[in-house]
């Protein structure tokens, strides 16, 4: 078990070192999220008085699209340099490779969310940080990274991988987006959501189901 954790951290820290050197994903998500938030800001007639519903939509639309761009970049490199094959040739269980990629994407998504929340606070003069959004972030990131890793690897084989990944990813994570926007809305408006427990259960259930099913399917797909 200790050894598996070590391998998981070895693979994920390698992804982070590559990113620290190339800064490719960070630069992409920074520019993209700043662009999306600023477009919403300039098109809004009164950015300081934005409704919680629209605010939550802006935050999660930015996260979903900048996250999917980061994912397609992340996996297209692995495909181009055949480095995923190199890891598959190593004595590492396939499930562990899947989990290590989820962990790396989880970290990239968290960085992207920090940037988006920061940009949102500046452009809309509103602080979205609340217990709600802090609860949402880890649950959303786990589910989104899990589905993103699975489809990222599949779509990296395709020439139009960026479009394909977004097309595959977004419809599946709609329940997760609904969960995230509902709770963020409650955080932005300051009004307690009566369905907090229901939405929280939905988010956690999504994560559990997709983590179990996709871990199983990932092994099968790679085997084939």
């Amino acid at each position: 078990m200790k050894n598996w954790v070590k391998i998981l951290l070895t693979i994920s820290s390698k992804d982070l070192i590559i990113e620290l050197k190339s800064k490719e994903i960070i630069v992409t998500i920074t520019l993209f999220s700043l662009l999306v938030v600023s477009i919403f800001s300039v098109t809004s007639s009164n950015p300081s008085n934005l409704s919680a519903e629209i605010g939550a939509g802006i935050i999660w639309a930015s996260v979903v699209f900048s996250g999917s761009i980061a994912m397609s970049k992340f996996f297209s490199h692995e495909e181009k340099d055949e480095t995923l094959n190199a890891i598959l040739l190593m004595p590492v269980p396939i499930e562990l490779i899947f989990f290590s990629k989820i962990l790396s994407l989880f970290i990239f998504l968290t960085i992207s969310e920090c940037l988006i929340i920061g940009a949102f606070s500046i452009f809309f003069n509103s602080n979205p940080l609340s217990i709600y959004i802090l609860t949402v972030i880890p649950i959303f990131n786990l589910g989104f990274s899990c589905v993103g890793t699975f489809f990222g690897i599949i779509s990296s084989k395709s020439r139009s991988n960026e479009i394909l990944l977004t097309l595959l990813l977004v419809p599946i994570v709609i329940p997760l987006i609904m969960f995230a926007t509902e709770l963020t809305k409650a955080g932005l408006s300051g009004i307690h959501s009566p369905n907090f427990n229901l939405w929280l259960s939905l988010g956690i259930l999504f994560d559990i189901i997709f983590l179990v099913v996709l871990t199983f399917l990932f092994g099968k797909i790679i085997d084939q």
């Binding site: 070895t10 390698k14 070192i17 340099d81 480095t83 040739l89 004595p91």
Partner: peptide, 27 residues
């Protein structure tokens, strides 16, 4: 040990970082 058409190395990492990474995975 495997060497295919592609060298299957991370271009952004140094030679040492690549070899240390794979030797750790090889145990």
């Amino acid at each position: 040990g495997v060497l295919m058409h592609s060298n299957m190395l991370y271009p952004q990492l140094t030679l040492k970082e690549n070899l240390l990474f794979f030797s750790k995975l090889l145990g």
